[in-house]
Design a protein around this nucleic acid. Sequence first.
DNA 1: TGAACATATGAGCATTTGTTCATGTATGGT
DNA 2: ACCATACATGAACAAATGCTCATATGTTCA
Lengths: 130, 130
Amino acid sequence: MEQSKDETIIERCDCVEVHSDVVDRIRQEMPEEETLYDLAELYKVFGDSTRVRILWALDAADLCVCDIAALLNMTQSAISHQLRVLKQARLVRYRRVGKNVYYSLDDDHVRSIFEQGLSHIREDHRGERG
Amino acid sequence: MEQSKDETIIERCDCVEVHSDVVDRIRQEMPEEETLYDLAELYKVFGDSTRVRILWALDAADLCVCDIAALLNMTQSAISHQLRVLKQARLVRYRRVGKNVYYSLDDDHVRSIFEQGLSHIREDHRGERG
DNA sequence: TGAACATATGAGCATTTGTTCATGTATGGT
DNA sequence: ACCATACATGAACAAATGCTCATATGTTCA
């Protein structure tokens, strides 16, 4: 999906005139390539409705895989796969309790990220900015 | 990528015991399916490093397509395609100035969403929560 | 130890996604 | 009108993604 993260810099822009002063300034101000890559990887995790629903549910209560599957009306396997993704992104943690494995949120930012997103979605977007 | 958004509810969970009290409560508390779907769609837009870099650049200055392509060392076409995605998500706006088209951020939440994301990434994650 | 339940995981597959390439559209200069 | 420049867009293709199915692992209980 992504391009190679770091490659030799070749001018591929097929334009002639570029505001090189601004571009150069921004190039310096931009965070490291890797940081922005990691950032995108994080949002990619949020970019699936199944995972969003799981996160939302776990924000309400700790749940075992079985509960989540029932709640979302999906197979246990599908949920388990997604939980692995969330685990790898360090957004959830788990603990075993007998035969069950309970998952819970492992990040304080999830809620605020959701809030910002909702805020954007709910904007009527009449055209103004500030 | 997604499943069908709304379908007849069939119990697909292959477990036997479910904490149905908790599940039922959460099911009621959860936002509408569509809201969470839209939320995921928004994050999906953030879930690509090219788009993240574009947004970050536009947060620093308004830029024409040509500038962005030069800055990110990508083709004008690739940038243009991505700008369309950002436009559809109402994250950027544009204005024509002669032959150029200048893009700018069209959302106040972009920066705070980035900040939350960065905050998560930068966590040392030693195991504690709050 | 073996059966039953809960969860994890690998392979396979259909769908989605991001880029490239070719071409279309819009604006300005001559 | 014509050309050059800037940008947009459709088709095509490789890579990534999310689910299903089958199966493996782990735990409890008899």
